[in-house]
Design a protein around this nucleic acid. Structure first.
Length: 765
DNA sequence: CAGTGAGCGAGCTTCCGCTTGACTT
């Protein structure tokens, strides 16, 4: 019989806490929730006042058995799940499953994982807060109602296997609406004039100052006229303003800000960031990685202070506590920080090292002094125009936190040059070296990447740290959005240059709209979003979550009854579901692009059984229509007739190589080259199947065959030992077999290979 | 592994929020 059993959510936390508690305590974990609404059907008895039907999911039966066993052998049970709505519900479910008395079961919470905090928690047990539990039940049931009532409407009205939900549907909406803004965006251009001045009277003498004109010129003629004025103007320094300023560090990481910075600085996807962070957490290198709090424990603050003072000196230290501003933050955990701030680096994989380094620097910087800067603005006037030129420069007088870490920005090309300015005095004459007027186009708002979409969701209070990464995956898995790179388009820009009294004109090429790892909506995402916005506007409203969160808070405070809240929500919601189902099935919208230039047949695009499709001709004309799938970077609403017609040019024969036809086409797995019955993938973003040449095709064929030869480590007749993504494996008759751990692959014989294959085949059966 | 686009019908799909492995041929 053990004296005390403490149940927490995470096994890593259990290990840490057990160390602090001593031998009278055993600490085990529930691995999160152990009970949930029934998987089959709705799992809610609406008639009985929304009575939930709970069950233990299959994958949780093992842990529940262990919990029961541990509980039966313990004198006292302490439920120590996290201090938030979900944690309270977890404690309640555990109590229910273990048959504990709610009136006496001890509920404790840790605000941070330190010896003091744990001792305080043990000394101040309370009972389970049923108001908080009920607010969780309301949240859970509402999400189930929304998801399980709207999704079937989509199956009937749009397409099978689609999904809708309070969180994912808003995520899709954000991406879809941003795309429409970009589609309708009309770029405008204006000429930005910059000048390189010198302080010396003769050519190339004195110091140099780069400055920008206060005015932009919409038309080329105006820009040219201004350059003429510049040519004959007398310049002088009208004003020099020196202003001191400060810059402050960013707060320590939460899940969302970690995902953003890991994306910007390391190029990690949000899922990758979480996987690496999980590893660091399990190894005891960082604190918990699913958090919405910027809070640091007192102990951490003290250690950080010591580390900073010893590494950088007293003047670099400034202890700060950051307030969390995020909507709906529950702050059950600390910010994400190094477990031991004195360690600036760790052992581990490359990615673990990089992410740890980021977390360490951000945390350290958050406790450092402000940077002191001096911003200088020089205004240059001209005697023949009211236009002024300004030059700004910034000098860092004291680095403070900048010595360790500076946050990146989402803006890719908005960074202004911050250069050092030479000492100049008011009324000093200046002379130009070169003045240039460069055509600048306005840009639409940028598309979302995974991390910036998470940031936006967090701002709207939608989703939780534990669901950001899964939500981003869901909307991609459903095919609503696609993450990819796009090359952008060439654009010509006009440049006028004034040098030594002469104005010259040139045209430069610029790439505009280049995208890297951005989220692009797909047709099905656009269609589902339009359907939801039309039929369920209140559910996909950006403020829906915030509104119901306020009600959940009231339930948690005991001011609102949870069943009443659900009733009030469900009555009109369910009515909308029913009326939407009764509405006439809206036929998939067909967009007419024009007539075929040669045959005159109609060319249309629409959503087909297998996705968006272009069609030449109509079955009503008696002829069999021709079909071609749209590519993932084309949308039904924007594709042009020319683009649609081009889809029908594949497959095409390039010619003959080694006496066999070389055909380029597009298949289930993207564009391919076929030769001698073998398929060769055409790499996305490198080659374009529509313009691929015979020469390049042969190159691809040869390269692939070469690479395949290298894959073969050894041959045993028809059995091959190959080197693959996960290491060595065996291949026979186009089937692959894993090699058991501990096999001596250097001295493998044919007999051993046969045995491995035989055993593997038997296992399958 | 390498595109489909006729039609019918049975059976299935789906939410959000807590947690980690198991496993890759």
């Amino acid at each position: 019989m053990i004296e005390n059993l403490v149940i927490v959510e995470s096994p890593a936390k259990a290990r840490t806490i057990e160390k602090f508690l001593g031998k009278d305590f055993r600490v085990i974990s529930s691995f999160g929730h152990i009970r949930d609404l029934a998987k089959k059907n709705l799992g809610i008895d609406i008639e009985k006042d929304f009575e939930p039907v709970y069950e233990i999911p299959g994958e949780k039966t093992k842990i529940v058995t262990e919990l029961r066993k541990a509980a039966s052998g313990a004198r006292n049970i302490w439920l120590a799940s996290d201090e938030d709505r979900e944690g309270e519900a977890i404690a309640w479910h555990i109590a229910g499953v273990l048959g504990l008395d709610l009136a006496t079961t001890k509920r404790i919470v840790f605000h941070e994982i330190t010896r003091d905090a744990i001792a305080t928690a043990i000394g101040n047990p309370r009972t389970i807060d049923m108001n908080l539990v009920n607010s969780q039940q309301a949240r859970r049931i509402l999400d189930r109602l929304v998801g399980f009532e709207i999704s079937p409407v989509l199956w009937k009205k749009v397409q099978p296997a689609l999904s809708a939900g309070r969180v994912q549907s808003v995520a899709v909406r954000l991406v879809a609406e941003r795309e429409r803004e970009i589609i309708s965006f009309k770029p405008e251009s204006a000429y930005r004039v910059t000048s390189v001045f010198r302080t010396g009277e003769t050519d190339n003498s004195g110091d140099v100052i780069r400055a920008e004109a206060s005015k932009r010129f919409p038309a080329a003629e105006e820009a040219e006229k201004f350059l003429e004025l510049c040519s004959s103007a007398q310049y002088n320094v009208e004003n020099v303003i020196v202003k001191p300023g400060t810059r402050s560090p960013a707060p320590p990481f939460t899940t969302s800000t970690l995902q953003q910075e890991a994306y910007r600085k390391l190029g990690f996807s949000v899922a990758q960031t979480m996987t690496v962070a999980q590893k660091l957490y399990e190894a005891g290198k960082i604190t918990y990685m699913r958090t919405d709090s910027t809070n640091l424990s007192k102990l951490a603050l003290a250690t950080l202070r010591e580390t900073i003072i010893s590494e950088y000196g007293q003047e670099y230290s400034k202890t700060r506590q950051y307030a969390t501003r995020t909507k709906g933050a529950q702050e059950a955990h600390e910010a994400i920080r190094p477990a031991y701030p004195a360690n600036p680096s760790i052992q581990g994989s490359q990615n673990e090292k990089k992410l740890y380094d980021l977390i360490w620097k951000r945390t350290i910087a958050s406790q450092m002094a402000d940077a002191l800067v001096e911003k200088t603005t020089i205004t240059v006037g001209m005697d023949n125009s009211p236009v002024k030129f300004t030059a700004t420069g910034e000098v860092v007088k004291f680095h403070g936190f900048l010595k360790v870490y500076a946050e990146s920005s989402d803006q890719e090309n908005g960074d202004e040059e911050k250069n050092l300015l030479p000492p100049v005095k008011k009324d000093m004459p200046l002379y130009y070296n070169v003045v240039s007027a460069v055509q600048k186009f306005t840009m639409p708002l940028p598309r979302y990447n995974e991390a910036s979409l998470v940031k936006k969701l967090e701002e709207l209070g939608i989703g939780r740290p534990s669901t950001y990464a899964p939500t981003i995956s869901t909307i991609q898995n459903r095919g609503y959005v696609l993450k990819e790179d796009r090359p952008g388009e060439k654009r010509q820009i006009s440049v006028y240059t004034l040098e030594k009294g002469k104005i010259s004109h040139s045209v430069k090429n610029e790439i505009s709209g280049k995208e890297k790892s951005k989220l692009f909506p797909q047709d099905i995402g656009m269609i589902v979003n339009d359907f939801l916005v039309e039929n369920f506007p209140e559910i996909v409203d950006y403020n829906f979550t915030a509104d119901i969160e306020r009600q959940f808070d009231e339930i948690a405070l005991g001011k609102l009854k949870w069943t009443g809240m659900l009733k009030k929500f469900y009555a009109p919601f369910h009515k909308t579901v029913e009326s939407t189902l009764e509405k006439k099935h809206r036929k998939a919208a067909v967009r007419f692009l024009g007539n075929h230039p040669e045959t005159g047949e109609p060319v249309t695009v629409r959503m087909g059984r297998f996705g968006p499709v272009a069609q030449i001709g109509s079955s009503e004309d008696g002829n069999k229509p021709r079909y071609a799938s749209l590519t993932h970077d084309q949308l039904i609403e924007t594709i042009s007739l020319e683009e649609a017609l081009r889809l029908f040019t594949l497959p095409r024969t390039l010619g003959s190589f080694e006496n066999e036809e070389v055909v380029v086409g597009k298949g289930k797995f993207g564009p391919y080259i076929r030769h001698k019955g073998k398929f060769y993938s055409v790499k996305k973003g490198v080659d374009d199947p529509y313009s691929l040449t015979m020469e390049r095709a042969i190159q691809i064929i040869n390269e692939k065959n070469e690479a395949e030869k290298k894959k073969v480590v050894r041959e045993f007749g028809d059995i091959l030992l190959l080197n693959g993504r996960y290491g060595l494996y065996l291949s026979k008759d186009k089937k692959n077999y894993r090699i058991p751990k501990g096999t001596d692959t250097d001295n493998l014989t044919r007999e051993e290979c046969e045995a491995i294959i035989e055993r593997s085949e038997k296992k399958k059966k």
